[in-house]
Structure formats: C-alpha cells, structure tokens
Write a protein that binds this DNA or RNA. Structure first.
Length: 460
RNA sequence: GUGGCCAUAGUUCAGUUGGUUAGAACAUCAGAUUGUGGUUCUGAGGGUCGUGGGUUCGAGUCCCAUUGGCCACCCCA
C-alpha cells in the first residue's frame, strides 16, 4: 500500500500562485537593495557546525539543524565504553562526534565567515545583500517556520551612521512599495548598557533587556517578576521603574534618557547615535513609515553593539517582527578579523507574505503568465500552428499550444480558463485555408479573424 | 524543552445515548455538446475513520499509549 506522503514539520510546498506572490516580494526587496548599491552573494545551505555553534547563544545552539555525518559516524569510537563515555558527556558534547555540518541558521554569521575568508578580494566598505533560505529546529507556530527565507542587506567595514540611516530608508522603501503600513522601532545597545550600568547591574544586561523587551506582552509586574527571578537586586529594579513607566515622543525620551544616563559614558554615546539617526531621518523627511525610539526593544542576537532595528506590521494579526537588524562591532573577530564593524537588516519574506496575504495586498497584475494559447482540432492544425507559435514567442509573447492534438474544445478552453490565459487562437480547416485565424478574447468573449501578423502586433 | 486544543475522502467538515453497507460540499475525471471556456445538469473514482492496544455481542464514537497538526511559553524572521 502506498504510504501517504508528507513533508517535514514546519516546511511548506509552494504552488505556482504562491510562487508568483513570493517572487513579487523578493523582487521588490531585491530592487531596493540594488538601488542602494548592495551586491548579491550566496553561501552554501550548510556550514561547518563549528562555524555556527556558540554564535546564537545557548538557545540558538539547540535550534541549529545538525547534519549527521555520512558514512560510519560511529568511527570515532573504538568500543562500547568509549561510546558510553561520550554519551554521558551530554547531548551537546555528543553531537560533535556524529555531526560536523549544519544547515545555516541565519545569513549574518555565514556572511561574517565569507568576509573573513575573502577579505583580500573585498573592497571595503562592503555592501552585500543575500536572499536565501535558513533553517531552525524550532517548534512551528503562527508566523514561525522551520525553513524560511531571509533577505539580508549588510554593510561591513564602515562605522558611519549614514548606513543606519540608509537602512531605515530601505525599510521604508520596501514596505511603502509593498503597501504595508509598518512601525519601525529603533534602539541602541549602548543605551541599554548605560541603563544597566547606571543601576549597578552591568553584568545582568542581557537578563534586564530581555525582561524589559517583554513589557508590552507581560506588563510591568511581569517584567519586575522576571527581573527578580533573574537575580536583579530590589534596588536596581526600583531604579528601573521610572524608565519602564516613561511614555512620550522620541524627543522626550531622548531628553529623559540624557538625564538618566548622565553618569554613563557609553549610555550617552548611545543617545548621541540615536539622536543622529533621528535627526538625519527628519531632515530627509519623506518617510512614509512610523519610526520611533523604543527603549524596550532588546531583540536581536547577542552580538548587536549599537543600533537595533525591528519592524512590525501596523495592521493584521501577525504580532511578530517582519524585519530586524542592527549593528555589530566585531562580528568577524571570532573568525580572526578584528575591528570590522557591520550593520544590517533582515527581511522575513515568509512573514511578509503572510501579512500581505491577510491584508489582501498582492496586486492583481502579477498573475500573468501565458498570454496566448493555440487551440487546434487535430494533428494537421497543430502542425500548421507550430511555426506560428514559434513566431509569437520570438516576438516576446508568452504563448503555448495545447499538446494533445485531438483534445476536445471544452478541454482546451478549460485549460485556458484555469491558467487565466487572456487570449486564445482557434485554428481549424477554415483558418488554415484562409490564413485568417480566430482570436478570442477570453475575458470579453469577443472573437475576430486576424492574420498571425495582426495577432502578434496586437498582443505584443 | 514545557503546556493547551485537535485528528473522518485531495480539501473543508457532518456522523445522534456505542448499533447494519461512514455521508455532504468543493476539487478531480467522464458525459450532456465530434468548431467554442468560465454557468448548469448527470454520472464516476476516491476512506482498513492518523497508528497501536484495550473495554464491549458490537467502536468513527468510550479508555490508554503513540505519532502528526495547530496554538501559546522559551526564543526568534
């Protein structure tokens, strides 16, 4: 008995209709990337496990899809007791014996690896974009897949905040073109460091920021409880309260933070950076998207050191971010190339798809594929049409002929219908004799007799 | 890794307090129509009811286990 086929959890097939829509998103993003001078690269689906491990934190390591070594992956073990010993070291240690490759988890770390490996061929600052799938061994849920596409643009080898400004413009361009209302949230890791420093908990910065990040989700009490659970002192928590409670415009936040962080050099530096970005953006002043400073924004991987970006749709039911990014001062350092600062953003194409789909924002016009179908009554007619078909294609018209020569009209017309082919040429004995072909407009139902030259001219 | 909900045709779902041969809609294929589609009508194919065990004279229905899916937490695009 045939088994019912299926695909792995969290993965999806894409139909022609879906691919047309997906390509619309990819094309839009790619076009914006190119307009800002970013160049494409690709990296392999798999990386050495050692390249990826330890780059995404404890949690991230678990979510990396490891690839089982091919051949005899037990060859490292001479006997059962060695195997048992390895097993007793725990899952993570054991993984090293049986897996040396993994599917890539994001595009940023492979990019860092790429930069280090090709440093002598690259002209810096290097602006690259990359649109590829990544894999995460997560439990799937709404807006979360185990295989999904990221569309990254990063510039590496430049400290200028102009890059941050441009990235925000690119975000605005992409979502303006896609017609998605979004809110762009900006923060700065240095501000977060300053806050942790000022309250005397510099070593707890990750715990503090992760907790504050959940403010809109779990509320003030939830945040405080999480801080408490993570061993942040009562005094420090008390000091955080005015910050957590603060509401205001970006400008008011900046003024407030300047006071709060007066004693922290790093904190003030962060504010200065944020101020520059907002001032420059304001000077450009043609942004369609909402942009705001959000000090509760702590998203992103452990390596962000400056700006942090996050974009959420301002409509629809998807609450997770559809784009994120930030600056990382020393990403290539672990691969042996220090002092190379990078900043970038990553669009989550699959989530953007879900948003566009829900809000019905895909344009109608992107569906067009075949424009003209040759409908025939038999082999003689089909033969007669083949050169005409070739001529239509040479003229740049997407055209096809129904392959089964004897197929019924209903069948052929139905095929045109299903594929939403707007024009059909019907060729039988009369048409062959006169050379006047019947061109039918499938939307209006109108039909006229034309030569192939006229048809090509009309549809070109 | 933790928790909640769910599982019947390709898809969305009916299926009575456990009772004969498990139904519908849509989709697919064929016919009504041997030179005219999208509408309509007729017919056909398609299910060991996720899987394994148990209770029972009898299980799609009740119980247990297992697998898969969805959602939430953790974390994240």
């Amino acid at each position: 008995m045939a088994q019912k086929p299926s695909i792995p959890k969290g993965t999806r097939d894409f139909s022609p209709e879906e691919m047309v829509k997906r390509n619309y998103i990819f094309d839009t993003i790619r076009q914006v990337f190119q307009r800002y001078g970013y160049l494409p690269i690709e990296t392999p689906a798999m990386e050495n496990l050692s390249t990826l491990m330890g780059k995404y934190g404890e949690e991230g390591d678990k979510l990396i899809f490891k690839i089982l070594n091919s051949g005899n992956y037990f060859s490292d073990f001479q006997n059962d007791s060695q195997l048992l010993e390895a097993k007793n070291q725990g899952e993570k240690a054991f993984t090293k014996y049986i897996s040396e490759k993994a599917l890539k988890y994001d595009l940023t770390v492979p990019f860092a690896r790429y930069v280090v490996q090709h440093q002598n061929e690259i002209t810096f600052p290097f602006k690259r974009y990359q649109i590829q799938p990544v894999w995460r061994a997560d439990r799937p849920q709404k807006g979360r897949y185990r295989e999904f596409y990221q569309c990254d643009a990063d510039v590496i080898g430049s400290n200028s905040l102009i890059n941050e400004v441009e990235l925000v413009q690119m975000i605005d361009d992409v979502f303006t073109q896609l017609n998605v209302p979004v809110i762009v949230k900006i923060n700065n890791r240095k501000i977060l460091s300053g806050i942790a420093e000022v309250i005397g908990q510099a070593d707890k910065i990750i715990d503090i920021t992760v907790a504050i990040d959940k403010l809109d989700k779990i509320g003030v009490e939830g945040v405080n409880k999480e801080l408490q659970d993570n061993g942040v002192s009562e005094a420090a928590i008390a000091q955080l309260q005015p910050l957590i409670a603060f509401q205001g415009t970006t400008l008011e936040k900046v003024i407030f933070l300047k006071q709060l962080l007066a004693g922290s050099a790093i904190g003030l530096k962060g504010i200065e950076e944020v101020e520059y970005i907002f001032k420059t953006l304001a000077a450009i002043s043609d942004l369609k998207s909402e942009v705001e400073l959000d000090i509760t924004l702590a998203r992103g991987l452990n390596y962000y050191t400056g700006a942090i970006f996050e974009v959420k749709a301002n409509a629809g039911t998807l609450s997770s971010s559809i784009c994120g990014g930030g600056r990382y001062d020393d990403l290539t350092g672990i691969f042996g190339l220090p002092n190379m600062s990078g900043v970038g953003i990553s669009f989550g194409a699959d989530r953007i798809y879900d948003v566009l789909n829900e809000l019905n924002l895909f344009p109608q016009s992107i569906a067009a594929s075949t424009k003209l179908l040759f409908v025939t009554f038999g082999e003689a007619e089909q033969h007669y049409c083949l050169p005409l078909l070739a001529r239509s294609r040479k003229a740049g018209i997407n055209a096809e002929i129904y392959p089964e020569a004897g197929a019924k009209m209903k069948k052929q017309m139905g095929y045109a219908d299903d594929k939403k082919i707007p024009f059909v040429v019907i060729v039988g004995g009369d048409e062959m004799q006169s050379g006047m072909l019947s061109l039918k407009n499938m939307t209006s139902g109108e039909q006229e007799k034309l030569t192939i030259e006229n048809i090509i001219e009309k549809l070109k």
